[in-house]
Computed example of a mutant assay.
Amino acid sequence: MAAYFSIFLVIVTLASGIIWMLDAWLLAPKRRASLTAAESQTAGLSDENKAHMLREPAIVETAKSIFPVIAFVTILRSFLWEPFQIPSGSMMPTLLVGDFILVEKFSYGIKDPVWRAKLVDTGEPERGDIFVFKYPLDPTIDYIKRVVGLPGDRIIYRNKQLYIQQACKEGQSPCPQPEQISHSEVSRGDFLQDGIPLMRYHEQLGDVNHDILINPLRPEPTAYYYQQPGTAEGEYLVPEGMYFAMGDNRDNSTDSRFWGFVPEANLVGKAVCIWISFEFNRKPDDVLPHWVPSGVRFNRIGGLE
Rank of each mutant, 00 (worst) to 15 (best):
residue 6 S to N: 15
residue 7 I to A: 11
residue 7 I to C: 03
residue 12 V to D: 02
residue 13 T to K: 04
residue 15 A to N: 03
residue 16 S to C: 12
residue 21 M to F: 13
residue 26 L to C: 06
residue 29 P to Q: 08
residue 31 R to A: 13
residue 34 S to D: 14
residue 38 A to E: 15
residue 42 T to E: 04
residue 44 G to N: 05
residue 44 G to P: 01
residue 54 L to E: 08
residue 59 I to D: 12
residue 64 K to W: 01
residue 79 F to N: 05
residue 80 L to V: 15
residue 91 M to Y: 05
residue 93 P to F: 11
residue 96 L to M: 14
residue 115 W to I: 15
residue 115 W to G: 06
residue 124 E to H: 12
residue 132 V to N: 12
residue 133 F to S: 10
residue 134 K to L: 10
residue 136 P to K: 02
residue 137 L to S: 13
residue 139 P to C: 00
residue 146 R to T: 04
residue 149 G to A: 09
residue 150 L to V: 03
residue 157 Y to T: 00
residue 158 R to H: 14
residue 159 N to A: 11
residue 160 K to T: 01
residue 163 Y to M: 11
residue 167 A to C: 02
residue 168 C to P: 01
residue 172 Q to R: 07
residue 175 C to Y: 04
residue 176 P to M: 04
residue 181 I to A: 08
residue 188 R to Q: 14
residue 190 D to W: 03
residue 190 D to Q: 14
residue 191 F to M: 02
residue 191 F to W: 11
residue 193 Q to E: 14
residue 194 D to Y: 04
residue 199 M to H: 01
residue 199 M to Y: 05
residue 207 D to V: 08
residue 217 L to G: 00
residue 220 E to L: 09
residue 222 T to A: 13
residue 237 L to P: 00
residue 239 P to A: 05
residue 242 M to H: 15
residue 248 D to P: 01
residue 251 D to S: 02
residue 258 F to V: 06
residue 260 G to I: 06
residue 261 F to A: 04
residue 264 E to Y: 02
residue 267 L to K: 12
residue 268 V to P: 01
residue 268 V to C: 01
residue 272 V to Q: 05
residue 276 I to R: 14
residue 276 I to N: 12
residue 280 F to I: 08
residue 288 L to R: 13
residue 295 G to S: 07
residue 300 R to C: 05
residue 301 I to R: 02
residue 305 E to T: 08
